[in-house]
Design a protein around this nucleic acid. Structure first.
Length: 909
RNA sequence: GGGUGCGUAGCUCAGGGGUAGAGCGUUGCCUUCACACGGCAGAAGUCGUUGGUUCAAUUCCAACCGCACCCACCA
């Protein structure tokens, strides 16, 4: 083995290629006697580059899927990419613009051809990056949401929902992105806090009415004052509304006022949705440009008047002077004109939240357009029920509230987008506007012919579907559902074998966008939940706890981190930080620490190799004789059981498993076990043989348990370390994992306790040596009167104690030096310390310890004297407290004996 | 307005009704033949505040103070 572990990209790549070449990632594809286990990778955008969130997501999935394979499941981890309508179209447009091609010059077909070419060329970068991360997905099954098969599934789903009346076309207000010039769904809206001008504007009353002079704020003299943050929309005003019970405006209800600049006379209507305390209590109603106004207008039979074009510029419905102005320009002009007419009562700055497009970042405009909607109410009920009944479990379970809240208040989903890149809506229009939904043009023609009794010209809908529509089908569309036009979907062999999936791992930020919709669609089309468990991991923040964003420039590049520390270090860090329900801050220091952990593992392997430890599959744990090995096997048993439990689908405590493994390998295996067997390894005979073979067997177990977390270094060790020579040609990743019941026991309690005793004794001695400043090189003689039992134990551990604590047991001692009573545990002995020790420092130290123990003794006896404690506390607790007191007393006694020794020494000198 | 989570060592964070834990940092000692990306030993915490439940609260409950986040609304 190399002295230093090489975690370079090239070295890791060699291992990865070998796994892939040997088909270790592939599922069987059919029933092979094993249980199946399916994970669907949340498909990253084709435009994507691996960011740290992907790294977390896929590391966790990879850990699980590697472990399940080692546990003997036939695993399918299906990767793929999402066509990402808006993102991709934007990117390709920009790409084309750089080459001097304007979007307007291209036909739809030409643009799509460009985009497909772009996708072939650049769309797979993220998949390469996932390989770097060690993701062991089945690349042969990789899918893209616009693959032919998936597109068929999309059409099938659409047509079914259309026939069921759940998808329909409607003219309503939608969130319109004036830059992208498409509708977007409610979920793609981001509220942004902005400073804005709240404008109080007088709308003059008509017909010389004089009422409403009561309150100064509201109606004053010959006008009614409305408040608005959007004065430029007044051209679309078709009413003014007040609350029916509002005393200030009671007399004005049913009267009319004039919308200034627009010079339109409108009614003052009463509606309970008007809030009296907001603004002036009088609300201008612009039905085509505000969601609340739309509702109020509908109820009062007001017409709809759109005053903006697709780019949110004022259109021909407004007076000529304002036409073509942007929202911002119009606002300034309107305010100036109102002011000059004396109708602008007041302008004050206020913060309010303004809806912005998630992608474009520009302020959105509610806009009246014809769009396609999906009624999700009934489907949402199913999704609610599935989670309530536990068919699907959300982890951490706290998400159930959020889940319920959203699904109970679900709104129709706007599924059409005015884009080119995506699944074109499979609906054709006849000349009279009649809709014909069909799988393809040919079928549409036939349907039309049947319907109209003759051939008619058809035009396909221009819009495409929201990207999330196809993502919502991902768990089953990827498995062949809907692919075979003529036959039942359930006959698709992959679907039958691998659906439903076991687990979905994703970030909580797409709980509604994606997870909820997958559950809804899956229940609707397959009558089954798409996954049993949804593990929602947290967000990764920077070291200051801020969200990572391009604008802040605090985005961490996982590839760079892997270059610096190796993939395993990054993976282990992510896993050990993955605490459910809590955001994690990524610190490079921690990655560095885990790089060290990887190195430690490598060095442990080197050590075993040098000591001629060799794995032998004929080794039987229950035949082991050495106490250290028995103790170690007991610990290993506990570790295997613990890790298995932590990584159950319904548990998913990655951080717990990682921490157990970390401390086992470093703190127990290296620091305690290897140190303790060093004397045996350096010796000879049966003991040495057992140490060689037992340690190798144990190490093999540890390496397998670690593999899902740190696949590269473990595979490399398995392949290169001579310890595993007997496994030549095999892959660690396909070895069966170590399970707790692989370790069979004898009655080892006495040995286990004895090793714990030795370790405790050693720690005590080391601690005293260090505090007293005894040179680490000095071997301290140690002698005394002990019982036979203790004597046997001390003799048995003589070598270990010498090596690890630097003490040498003598049954008699007559040499020089200061002899001190040492009975930290149950060993009543004298420890000979060198003369250089400063006796006064020592004395002070003893006094301090004495005080601490006295304090403990006091608090313990107080507790024990409490009758209520005795009556109510469980017996074990009571007993433990009593032991604590006894121990404190014996420590005190011991320290007093040392004090006596010290006094004697001081007297002698 | 509705909801969720978080205040634990200098920093980043685990934990959880009965001796307070880790990593990093820090102090002392050790370049001993796996590893200085190391070893050994140590220092360091009123577990946000105040009440309540309990024999026992850092842990459970309530209120409060701070800090995030999600949904809705915003004239």
């Amino acid at each position: 083995m190399d002295k230093r572990y090489d975690f370079s990209a090239e070295a890791e790549r060699t291992l990865y290629d070998d796994w892939e070449k040997r088909g270790a990632f592939q599922c069987a594809g059919h029933c092979d006697g094993k249980d199946s286990y399916t994970l669907m990778m949340p498909p990253p955008n084709v435009t994507g580059r691996l960011h740290i969130g992907h790294a977390l997501d896929n590391t966790l999935q990879d850990i699980l899927v590697r472990l399940r394979r080692q546990q003997g499941y036939d695993c399918l981890w299906l990767p793929g990419t999402d066509h990402a309508g808006i993102a991709t179209q934007l990117l390709v447009s920009r790409h084309l613009a750089e080459q001097g091609v304007a979007l307007e010059q291209l036909s739809r077909e030409e643009f799509l051809a460009h985009t497909w070419r772009w996708k072939e060329q650049y769309g797979n970068i993220i998949l390469q990056q996932l390989r770097r991360l060690g993701a062991s997905c089945d690349w042969q099954r990789a899918r893209f949401t616009m693959d032919e098969g998936l597109s068929r599934a999309v059409r099938r789903a659409f047509l079914t929902l259309y026939d069921q009346g759940l998808i329909y076309r409607d003219e309503r207000l939608v969130n319109w992105d004036p830059q992208l010039q498409t509708a977007i769904s409610d979920l793609e809206v981001r509220q942004q806090e902005k400073q804005g001008q709240l404008c109080l504007i007088d709308y003059p009353l008509q017909n010389g009415q004089q009422e409403g002079q009561q309150e100064g704020q509201g109606a004053r003299g010959r006008s009614i004052t409305i408040a608005t943050m959007r004065p430029e929309t007044l051209f679309g005003d078709l009413a003014v509304a007040v609350h029916p019970a509002d005393e200030r405006y009671r007399a004005l209800q049913g009267k009319r006022c004039l919308v200034p600049l627009a010079e339109r006379e409108v009614a003052i209507i009463a509606d309970e949705r008007v809030q009296r305390e907001q603004g002036t209590g009088a609300l201008k109603i612009t039905p085509a440009h505000d969601f609340l106004d739309f509702e109020i207008g509908k109820q009062h039979g007001l017409p709809l008047l759109s005053i903006f074009d697709a780019q949110a510029r004022l259109n021909d419905e407004v007076p000529a002077a304002y036409r073509g102005l942007s929202r911002e320009q119009a606002r300034a002009r309107v305010l100036a004109d109102l002011k000059s007419r004396g109708l602008l009562r007041e302008v004050r700055m206020e913060t309010h939240s303004v809806p912005h497009g998630e992608r474009s970042g520009v302020a959105l405009e509610p806009r009246l357009t014809k769009q396609w909607f999906m009624n999700t109410e009934g489907l949402a009920r199913g999704a609610l029920e599935a989670v309530r009944k536990g068919e699907t479990t959300l982890l951490p379970q706290t998400w159930i509230n959020t889940w319920r809240q959203w699904l109970e208040n679900i709104q129709p989903w706007c599924i059409s987008r005015q884009l080119w890149w995506g699944h074109r809506i499979p609906v054709w229009y006849a000349p009279d506007g009649e809709q014909i939904a069909a799988r393809n043009e040919k079928e549409a023609m036939q349907k039309a012919e049947t319907k109209f009794g003759k051939k008619v010209a058809l035009v396909q809908e221009e819009d495409v579907l929201d990207t999330w529509f196809s993502s919502a089908l991902w768990p089953f569309s990827t498995l062949g559902w809907g692919n075979e036009e003529a036959r039942e979907a359930d006959e698709a062999p992959l679907f039958r074998r691998y659906f439903p999936t076991q687990l979905l791992v994703t970030g909580f930020d797409i709980l509604f966008f994606w997870v909820a919709r997958m559950v809804m669609m899956s229940l609707h089309f397959t009558k089954r939940v798409p996954f049993r468990i949804v593990y929602l991991h947290a967000l990764i923040r920077d070291t200051q706890g801020r969200k990572m964003s391009k604008s802040l420039g605090n985005v961490v590049d996982p590839i760079a981190l892997m270059d610096r520390y190796g993939c395993d270090a990054l993976r282990f860090t992510l896993a050990s930080q993955a605490v459910p329900g809590r955001d994690l801050r990524l610190s490079e220091k921690r990655i560095e620490g885990n790089r060290n952990f990887v190195t430690k593992l490598w060095n442990a392997a080197r050590f075993l190799e040098m000591q001629h430890c060799r794995y032998d599959e004929n080794f039987r744990t229950n035949e082991v004789e050495g106490a250290v090995h028995r103790w170690m096997l007991t610990r290993l048993h506990k570790l295997a059981a613990g890790v298995e439990e932590d990584l159950k689908d319904e548990v998913c405590l990655f951080h717990e498993a990682a921490s157990k493994l970390y401390h086992f390998l470093w703190g127990v295996f290296c620091d305690e076990y290897l140190e303790m067997i060093k004397p045996a390894l350096g010796g000879e005979g049966r003991e040495r043989e057992e140490a060689r073979v037992a340690s190798a067997w144990i190490f093999y177990g540890v390496v397998r348990l670690l593999h899902p977390f740190v696949p590269f270094v473990t595979e490399r060790i398995f392949r290169e370390c001579k310890v595993f020579d007997s496994c030549k040609g095999r892959l660690l990743m396909t070895e069966k994992t170590l399970q707790a019941n692989d370790i069979t026991f004898g009655d080892w309690n006495a040995d286990v306790e004895e090793v714990a005793w030795v370790l405790g004794l050693m720690n005590k001695i080391r601690s005293w040596r260090s505090e007293l400043g005894v040179s680490p090189q000095a071997t301290v003689p140690w002698f005394g009167e002990v019982g036979d039992n203790t004597k046997r134990k001390l003799e048995r551990w003589e070598d270990v104690l010498r090596a690890m604590a630097g003490v040498e047991w003598r049954s008699r001692y007559a040499g020089r030096g200061t002899a001190l009573t040492f009975d930290g545990l149950d060993v009543d002995t004298k420890l000979v310390l060198s003369e250089e020790i400063d006796i006064n420092t020592f004395k002070a130290m003893i006094r301090k310890k004495m005080q601490d123990w006295k304090k403990t003794k006091q608090s313990s006896s107080m507790k024990l004297d409490n009758v209520k404690f005795k009556n109510n506390a469980p017996h074990e607790i009571w007993k433990a407290e009593e032991d604590k007191l006894t121990n404190a007393q014996s420590q005190i006694d011991w320290l007093s004996r040392i004090e006596e020794d010290i006094e004697k020494i001081l007297k002698e000198s």
